[in-house]
Design a binder for these strands. Structure first.
Length: 236
DNA sequence: GCGACAG
DNA sequence: ATCTTGTCGC
């Protein structure tokens, strides 16, 4: 009844030090080798909407997962879940704030996506274990992160052309942690990084395919709309 | 020590 | 993230 099996074999951290230690422990479990899904049929987008400040604990949040058929870009399934945040917003510990609600929504899905696209970073993270990596390890599914602003890593501005498809590596501490990708000519790029079971070129190719007209991929846009809709339904 | 800091 | 008016452009 629950195709997407999500294993959470550890106690959820309550403090920042504990959360960081957990990321360090789980980091080696993320597989950034590829190539990963070259022709996925089902790609899911995930996002979370907040009520109130959106920075503290106890805030109501609504998570959404939208599965898209890459052949037609049609939405084939949607799932949502609401919850109260159990962790404050701390850069670098973002996953501990959004994962509970996202996992709950994923468990309500009937189909098993071939790839999960998260709203946030994967490897381009201070400890190389952003939300996309964490969700990948928990689900065992290929994941990648698509962020609207950079976090860890910088790219040479001159190396990023103005055309759609142009890209430049995000480098941090001498290693490539992600890529700035232009999905639309003359528009700010999105920041793509691997999460689990997919390599960077493949992840970028999937993001570009899913963003033929807008800056953000359809998966992210659909999930964003659905999460807000779910929050309205839960609030008013 | 200071600034920066995904959503 | 969320709160918000008008405005420029496809």
């Amino acid at each position: 009844m629950t195709p997407v099996r999500v294993e959470v074999p550890y106690a959820w951290p309550t403090g920042e030090a504990e959360a960081r230690a957990l990321q360090e422990r789980l980091r080696p479990l993320a597989d950034h080798r590829g190539p990963g899904p070259a022709a996925p049929r089902l790609v899911a987008g995930l996002d979370v909407a907040y009520a109130g400040d959106g920075r503290g604990t106890g805030d109501l949040v609504a998570a959404a997962v939208v599965v898209i058929d890459t052949a037609t870009h049609d939405v084939v399934e949607r799932a949502t879940a609401t919850a109260a945040t159990a962790f404050p917003y701390v850069p670098g510990l973002f996953a501990f704030r959004e994962l509970p609600a996202l996992v709950a929504a994923l468990r309500r899905l009937e189909a098993v996506p071939d790839l999960l696209l998260c709203d946030g970073h994967g490897r381009s993270h201070p400890r190389r274990f952003g939300l996309a990596c964490h969700l990948g390890v928990l689900t065992g599914l290929p994941t990648a992160g698509v962020a609207k602003t950079p976090f860890t890593g910088r790219h040479d501005p001159a190396a990023l052309g103005p055309d759609r498809g142009a890209h430049a590596d995000l480098v941090d501490g001498g290693e490539v942690v992600g890529r700035a990708l232009r999905t639309r000519a003359g528009v700010k790029p999105v920041y793509v990084s691997t999460g689990h079971l997919v390599d960077l070129p493949t992840a970028c190719a999937r993001v570009l395919e899913l963003a033929p007209r807008h800056r953000l991929p359809e998966t992210t846009r659909q999930a964003d709309h659905l999460s807000r809709e779910a929050l309205r339904a839960a609030t008013g």
